[in-house]
Amino acid sequence: MTDTTTLIAQLRALLVLTQTEEQIARIRVTQARTDAVRRELQQNAEHAAERTTAIAEQLRRLGGMTDVVTPALGRLGALVKATLEQAEPIDEALLQDLQLEHQLLDRATYLKVLAQTAEQPAVHELAERLVTAHSATVEWLTVVLAEQALGGPAALRATPFQRVAGGAGKLASLPVRFAANTVNRAVDTAQHAGGQAGGAVNGVVGDVVGRATAFSGAVRETLTVGRVASLRRAERIAEREGNSSTAEAVAATRRELGDLTAEELPIAGYDSMSTAQIAKAVRELDDPQQVNAVIRYEEAHKARSSVVSATQTRLAALAKEAVGIPE
């Protein structure tokens, strides 16, 4: 028979991790793209709270005293995670969520075997419940990441900082080099002009960074409009010069921002269709990029929740297919 000390240690570890899971789920609620995802995340948070209570009860039953520090540690862990991930793209944050769920699943599986060996049926039942819950969450996060990999807006929206972090990564590989070349020439000139010029450049950069942190929603919207106009102009220039690869790259970036016309959508007569007709048409799309185009157009122009949910459901189905998860 296994000493209950090991069981208590695993229950304590699961308690801290489950507290963290609950807080992260509550943070993710604010990032939900659709009402359905928001409800699911709210339920996840509530279920995590219930699991926390069940774990604490088993700890008390086995003589492992619970304390007021453990829940605080879980909340602190979630807060630290949420703060640190602001400097990361959304996919990195989701990968860390997935890592947490895998750790919870592995510990719950270990606890299940320990409880069986120690002849603790109540703990064994709890462990089975945990394994089922975390297996479902692992699958859900895997699909969300697959949606992201397919290029579509995932079930969760990136925070403003995460959009900047992700956009920086995309910008680095963007084949449109006019802005980059201009910046490179300016920096090169400043370096040759000497340290004083370098100090001036640093001062300007610092000022820009400082101002960026104070942008309001209205200013960000203005910048987005300006960015779309610039992309359209860059696309026209590339097409005029016969640079089709650059023109397509810029067009893809423009479409990702939701700057689409109805004629560019894969569904003919989109603007004259009812929401039910659109939902039916979306279910027939097999190309994730086409589904993404519909999502981004709808969000940028009409923002009908039923249409967004239908397209998101189709994208999730394609993501499941991509990772080998049966419907």
Rank of each mutant, 00 (worst) to 15 (best):
residue 1 M to Y: 01
residue 2 T to H: 06
residue 6 T to D: 08
residue 10 Q to F: 06
residue 13 A to G: 12
residue 14 L to N: 02
residue 22 E to H: 12
residue 25 A to Y: 04
residue 27 I to T: 12
residue 34 T to M: 08
residue 39 R to S: 13
residue 40 E to S: 15
residue 42 Q to P: 04
residue 44 N to I: 03
residue 45 A to I: 01
residue 59 L to M: 15
residue 59 L to G: 03
residue 64 G to I: 01
residue 64 G to E: 02
residue 66 T to R: 07
residue 69 V to A: 14
residue 69 V to H: 10
residue 74 G to Q: 01
residue 74 G to A: 02
residue 75 R to C: 01
residue 76 L to S: 07
residue 79 L to D: 11
residue 84 L to Q: 08
residue 84 L to M: 10
residue 87 A to S: 13
residue 92 E to M: 12
residue 93 A to E: 08
residue 101 E to Y: 08
residue 103 Q to E: 15
residue 106 D to M: 14
residue 108 A to L: 07
residue 108 A to F: 01
residue 116 Q to Y: 09
residue 124 H to I: 00
residue 127 A to S: 05
residue 130 L to I: 08
residue 137 T to R: 15
residue 140 W to S: 13
residue 145 L to C: 12
residue 147 E to R: 11
residue 148 Q to L: 11
residue 149 A to L: 09
residue 149 A to T: 08
residue 155 A to Q: 07
residue 163 R to C: 09
residue 165 A to L: 05
residue 166 G to C: 05
residue 177 R to C: 06
residue 180 A to T: 14
residue 184 N to M: 14
residue 193 A to P: 04
residue 199 G to W: 10
residue 199 G to F: 11
residue 200 A to I: 09
residue 203 G to P: 05
residue 206 G to I: 00
residue 207 D to F: 08
residue 210 G to N: 14
residue 210 G to C: 05
residue 212 A to R: 11
residue 215 F to A: 12
residue 215 F to G: 05
residue 220 R to K: 15
residue 223 L to I: 10
residue 225 V to C: 06
residue 226 G to Y: 00
residue 227 R to I: 01
residue 229 A to G: 04
residue 229 A to N: 14
residue 230 S to C: 02
residue 233 R to S: 09
residue 235 E to N: 00
residue 238 A to Q: 01
residue 240 R to T: 12
residue 241 E to F: 09
residue 243 N to H: 12
residue 248 E to N: 05
residue 249 A to T: 02
residue 251 A to K: 07
residue 255 R to L: 02
residue 256 E to V: 00
residue 258 G to P: 03
residue 260 L to Y: 04
residue 261 T to C: 06
residue 266 P to V: 06
residue 269 G to H: 05
residue 272 S to L: 10
residue 280 K to Y: 05
residue 287 D to S: 07
residue 288 P to W: 00
residue 290 Q to L: 03
residue 291 V to Y: 03
residue 294 V to D: 00
residue 295 I to E: 06
residue 296 R to F: 06
residue 297 Y to S: 03
residue 299 E to K: 11
residue 305 S to Y: 06
residue 313 T to A: 15
residue 315 L to E: 02
residue 316 A to T: 10
residue 317 A to F: 07
residue 324 G to C: 09
residue 325 I to Q: 12
residue 326 P to M: 05
